[in-house]
């Protein structure tokens, strides 16, 4: 991010922030999909195809990058650790994560589910994955992902979004994600400390 930390003192409102800060931080495992305006995954500043598949718990495992439920991972962990294709994990709200602390390094992607937009548990789970467990792979929001949540999601550590909601897809494509780009809390996102109160204040510019 470039940006001018002094912008807030200029008296001129900053331009709208880009809706996303950049590429997923998924290191050597990166499985990005291809740019595709009709694709389901919002990454960076564009929609992409989804390189991942999520088999049902009773479905045989295909080759290629797979996202597994926590139940399946726990049941088949020993067999799956021998797999070479990238592994992903999906956590549902209410599922504990501390018992997986030793496993997170195996996952290139963790998907956190928002079954309803009002269910905000995954915001805290994301913070814990990034801050407590040091997860550096792709953190993906799936489920009821709506436009006014995306800036909050980015700030707690998400970097990709599976978006099915029509108005939100249009808003993303048109760069119309509502966001206040000045922040009163430090976060896991890349933001510029603001000089007057660098311990707390951040700017997205």
């Amino acid at each position: 991010m470039g940006g001018n930390p002094e912008l807030h003192e200029s008296g001129v409102p900053p331009p709208p922030a880009p809706p996303h800060k950049g590429e997923g931080n998924s290191g050597a495992f990166a499985v990005s999909g291809e740019p595709d305006p009709g694709g389901p995954i919002w990454r960076g500043a564009a929609f992409h195809t989804d390189a991942w598949t999520k088999p049902a718990d009773d479905e045989p495992l295909a080759n290629g990058p797979l996202i597994l439920s926590k139940t399946r991972w726990l049941a088949e962990r020993d067999r799956l650790t021998g797999r070479n294709a990238p592994l992903g994990l999906q956590i549902e709200p209410g599922e504990a994560i501390d018992d997986l602390a030793a496993d997170f390094g195996r996952f290139a992607l963790i998907a956190l589910s928002f079954p309803k937009f009002a269910d905000g548990r995954a915001f805290s789970t994301a913070r814990l994955l990034r801050d407590k467990h040091g997860f550096t792979g792709e953190l993906r929001a799936v489920g009821n992902v709506l436009s006014d949540q995306i800036p909050y999601m980015r700030r707690v550590g998400f970097d990709t979004y599976a978006v099915t909601h029509g108005p939100t897809r249009r808003a993303l494509a048109e760069g119309r994600i509502p966001e206040v780009t000045l922040y009163y809390q430090p976060s896991t996102a890349e933001e510029v400390p603001v000089s007057t109160r660098p311990w707390l204040r951040r700017s997205g510019q």
Binding site: F117, A118, D119, G120, F123, S124, R127, Q149, P151, Y152, M153, R155, V156, V180, Y183, Y184, Q185, S187, L200
Partner: peptide
Amino acid sequence: RQWSSLHPEFSFLP
């Protein structure tokens, strides 16, 4: 007040 304003983690509480 400042810390809680548009808090990214705590805007969709139960």
